[in-house]
């Protein structure tokens, strides 16, 4: 008899929080994408219109929002892969904890270098 139940996906604790975070990031990315396609559509209006609007994004405040967006996408992407592994990989449900830690590790490994390089672009420099 296992001491903990296996086979259920969302059973409180980390599972619950990651589910909430997956949902919030999904909604956030969706609304970003609606606006993103609209601003990209300005390339059909004129080069000036596009450059002007993109130009207003090139400041520290939007730069930090981009950091938030990328952090959210990295989480949603790798937590999504975790969900897929739990569903399709026979050993997935038994390795939930390890998969969860894996998501955290991959997230940090990709996010930290991203933040450094992106902030270097945002705050001048190269």
């Amino acid at each position: 008899m296992p001491s903990k139940p296996v086979g259920t996906l969302y059973r409180g604790h980390e599972g619950m929080w990651s589910w909430v975070a997956h949902r919030i990031t999904g909604v956030g990315i969706f609304f970003f994408l609606l606006v993103h396609v609209l601003d990209t559509a300005l390339v059909r209006v004129s080069p000036e219109a596009y450059n002007e609007v993109i130009g207003t994004y090139k400041n520290p405040i939007v730069g930090l929002m981009e950091v938030g967006l990328v952090g959210a996408i990295l989480f949603h992407a790798f937590n999504g892969i975790r969900l897929i592994l739990v569903d399709f990989w026979a050993k997935g449900p038994r390795n939930q904890r390890k998969l969860m830690i894996g998501v955290g590790v991959v997230w940090i490994v990709l996010f930290v270098p991203f933040v450094i390089r992106h902030l270097m672009h945002v705050f001048g420099g190269e």
């Binding site: 990209t40 993109i54 981009e66 992407a77 390089r117 945002v122």
Partner: peptide, 26 residues
């Protein structure tokens, strides 16, 4: 995963990153 992370890498990490984005880049 491939499409979006690839998009972000090419547009934000390569070259001048966000500072290089304009009509000519597109």
């Amino acid at each position: 995963v491939v499409l979006v992370l690839g998009h972000l890498f090419v547009n934000l990490m390569l070259g001048g990153g966000i500072t290089a984005l304009d009509f000519a880049f597109v």
